Amino acid sequence: MIEFQQITKRYDQRKEPFFALNQVSLSIPDGSITGILGQSGAGKSTLLRLINGLVRPTSGKVLIDGQEIQQLKDAQLRPIRHQMSMIFQHFNLFATKTVYQNIAIALQAVGVPKDQHQKRITKVLNEVGLPHKIDSYPSQLSGGEKQRVGIARALITEPKYLLCDEITSALDPKSAKEILELLRRIHQERKLTIVFITHQIEAVMALCQEVILMEEGAVIHRSSTLDLFLHIDNPTTATYLKAVIYDVQIEHDNVYQLIYVGKILQEDSILSHMIRTFHVDVNIIHAKVLLIGEEHLGYLYLQIIGDKQSQAITYLREQGILVHALENQRFLEKKS
């Protein structure tokens, strides 16, 4: 387990002290995929580098499997670092070395005998889908292939923790999706812990089981990824969700936002039953379904009109659907 206890990281190079992290306390359980989401300067990369001791806190404690790493000498810290591997945004491959040689560097660093290199490198390249690129140079690879080599190099030492720093930010959408799918498969097969730093909400949706939001060196929200998208009325998180949830312009009265998990509306004919039972008229304004990990999450915007409107809304909520009344935005503009 990774634990941060009252972590502060202060830099004094400026006229006034700058706090990259300010009183951060959280834990990352073993076997999880945790996304740390925030804009540039939020403190997420500093937090990541505290894990492997590349950055030391000004105050507070960082514990890895119960050991306070900032109290350890280099010789004591080395075996802990061997349990961690880092993947970078810009690949960090040596241009003059082949794929084989780039991966072998990691084996040399942890003292694996040279006669074991060929077998282990061939195995990990099969795992990331690049066995045919073993003798290629980085200049002969696409961006997605370079990142696969970076993942292979990270996995070759069989780490417990995989630290990912904006690793999809430099990739095109197709390559980014493939990398996220690869990481999900690796997690399922190896059961390792993945800490995934990103400013892309789409990457969190596709990969992470839980999400930590950071702003100005502080944690402002933590929840499961699904819960983040279920409660989009939270002003703290709404800014991050607008990029993927259609911001509907409401120009009618009696409009409601329905949020539901799975395909319950289609499978159980809930809407049809509501219309027949409560004799309401329904106008569908907008609908969207997102894939959060392996779970479908639906957003449906309805205008519901009728004398038994309130009973109809109560019925929807009893079926496990989140229902929010939305204001007519033209009316709001007139009021302001």
Score class of each variant (00 low, 15 high):
253 D>C: 06
241 L>G: 06
321 I>C: 08
2 I>E: 12
98 T>Q: 04
313 I>H: 14
100 Y>D: 10
230 L>T: 08
68 E>T: 14
298 G>L: 00
134 I>G: 05
250 I>G: 07
242 K>M: 07
251 E>L: 13
305 I>A: 02
176 A>V: 08
240 Y>M: 08
100 Y>K: 15
258 L>F: 10
146 K>W: 03
213 L>C: 08
47 L>H: 05
218 A>I: 15
189 E>A: 11
153 R>S: 06
208 C>K: 11
317 R>M: 09
252 H>V: 09
302 L>W: 00
327 E>N: 14
273 H>A: 13
206 A>N: 04
94 F>T: 12
312 A>P: 03
239 T>F: 15
281 D>R: 14
154 A>H: 01
28 I>M: 10
201 I>R: 05
211 V>L: 01
176 A>W: 02
163 L>P: 03
72 L>G: 07
100 Y>T: 12
208 C>A: 14
262 G>P: 02
307 D>A: 14
41 G>W: 02
209 Q>M: 02
295 E>D: 08
165 D>W: 05
57 P>M: 04
71 Q>A: 08
123 K>A: 15
233 D>K: 15
204 V>M: 02
139 S>Y: 05
242 K>P: 06
241 L>D: 04
21 L>I: 11
289 V>F: 13
50 L>F: 13
107 L>K: 04
18 F>R: 07
182 L>E: 01
292 I>N: 06
155 L>S: 08
298 G>Q: 00
178 E>C: 01
231 H>A: 07
207 L>C: 07
334 K>H: 12
148 R>I: 07
334 K>E: 14
142 S>T: 10
69 I>P: 09
196 F>M: 09
323 V>L: 04
320 G>L: 12
315 Y>N: 13
252 H>A: 15
300 L>E: 01
305 I>E: 11
139 S>P: 00
262 G>Q: 02
265 L>N: 15
276 R>H: 14
115 D>V: 13
45 S>G: 03
82 H>V: 00
26 L>W: 08
290 L>F: 02
237 T>E: 15
89 Q>K: 10
217 G>Q: 05
205 M>V: 01
91 F>K: 05
166 E>F: 13
188 Q>H: 13
66 G>V: 03
172 D>S: 02
201 I>L: 12
190 R>Y: 10
287 A>P: 01
118 Q>Y: 02
80 I>N: 04
311 Q>G: 04
59 S>L: 08
225 T>F: 03
27 S>P: 08
36 I>R: 03
85 S>V: 07
200 Q>E: 14
280 V>Y: 05
53 G>E: 06
230 L>D: 12
214 M>W: 12
92 N>Y: 15
155 L>R: 06
305 I>P: 00
332 L>V: 15
260 Y>Q: 05
154 A>F: 00
4 F>I: 13
221 H>E: 11
187 H>N: 09
268 D>Y: 15
108 Q>W: 09
172 D>I: 01
140 Q>H: 03
275 I>S: 04
202 E>M: 04
148 R>V: 10
102 N>K: 13
95 A>H: 13
62 V>L: 04
83 Q>C: 04
90 H>G: 06
124 V>A: 10
220 I>H: 14
129 G>M: 05
53 G>F: 01
235 P>M: 02
79 P>Q: 12
325 A>T: 11
